[in-house]
């Protein structure tokens, strides 16, 4: 498999003997330009990879924090073209950092599968995470993504049986997203042992890096996950920083500070 911006970034973290830090924020939140600044702050703080969320009217996999952010973004009028501009500006500012889009399937379907892949690649995007598109329904997307050099990251869950894990990881590229809590997105107080078991079972099926998302919100939790995973994915904790901030500048600063804190976590020995 050819190296991509995404595989290169994850390999670089591995070469340093540590897990990668992957940060998520929705585009258009609190505004399109404010969102771009906040995502740049993820990278300035120390994220190795960023996921740009495409806000959706029906975010059935998201908890209250990301629902609120999506709602603010949509009421602010964010469109797919704004999401693509966000990707383009972040990718231009940080050419080595892979910028993924995380989106529910219907916006891509509606925009046009080939068109979305082409426009995302043209914007400098590295790939997509499509959490409600199971591998059985993904043939058209994978073809388009392949033609444009985009990675497709599939999600696995604690309820995925071993045979199923093998099917999912065989279809994906870049890394495998282990959604290691049964539930919607949101921060959790404890890491739990489902995650380590899921990572081990996933690794038995693939050579791809396995990155874990389970509601990490601080450096101690990041360190705990980093001890058994190839990457630590953080979303709601960043969104919450922006929601809680007195103004957008303070929010961006808080995002940068949290990213820096988490970056120390993934480097802890």
């Amino acid at each position: 498999m050819a190296d991509t911006k995404l595989t290169t970034a994850l390999a670089a973290a591995k070469a340093e003997g540590r897990a990668a830090l992957i940060g998520y924020l929705p585009a258009g939140f609190p505004t399109v330009d404010g969102g771009i600044a906040a995502i740049n702050a993820l990278i300035e703080g120390g994220c190795d990879v960023v996921e740009v969320g495409l806000p959706h009217s029906d975010p059935v996999l998201d908890g209250a924090v990301i629902q609120t952010a999506d709602d603010i973004a949509l009421r602010g009028g964010v469109k797919i073209k704004d999401v693509l501009r966000t990707v383009a500006e972040v990718a231009a500012a940080h050419p080595a950092v892979p910028v993924l889009v995380m989106t529910y399937w219907n916006p891509v379907d509606r925009y046009g599968v080939a068109r979305f892949a082409a426009d995302l690649a043209a914007a400098g995007g590295a790939g997509c995470i499509l959490p409600d598109l199971p591998v059985e329904e993904a043939a058209e997307w994978r073809k388009a993504a392949g033609e444009h050099g985009l990675d497709t990251v599939f999600v696995v869950a604690p309820s995925s049986k071993d045979a199923r894990l093998a099917e999912v990881t065989a279809a994906g590229s870049g890394f495998v997203y282990a959604a290691a809590v049964m539930g919607v997105t949101g921060t959790r107080s404890a890491v739990g042992n489902l995650a380590e078991d899921l990572v081990a079972r996933t690794r038995a099926t693939t050579a791809l890096p396995v990155c874990v998302g389970l509601g990490v919100s601080n450096a101690d939790q990041a360190a705990e996950v980093a001890a058994f995973a190839d990457g630590v994915i953080v979303g709601s904790a960043f969104v919450k920083r922006l929601l809680d901030a007195a103004d957008p500048e303070a929010g961006t600063a808080a995002v940068r500070a949290l990213a820096a804190d988490l970056a120390t976590g993934v480097r802890r020995k």
Binding site: V60, L61, W105, P131, D132, L133, P134, E136, E137, F154, V155, V156, A157, P158, S159, S160, K161, R164, V168, A179, M182
Partner: peptide, 20 residues
């Protein structure tokens, strides 16, 4: 067998629900 009525139907669900 995949739940399609012509072009419609299917199963667009998160991985966490596939087993259920």
């Amino acid at each position: 067998s995949r739940g399609y009525f012509g072009a419609y139907g299917g199963r667009f669900i998160p991985e966490a629900l596939v087993a259920a």
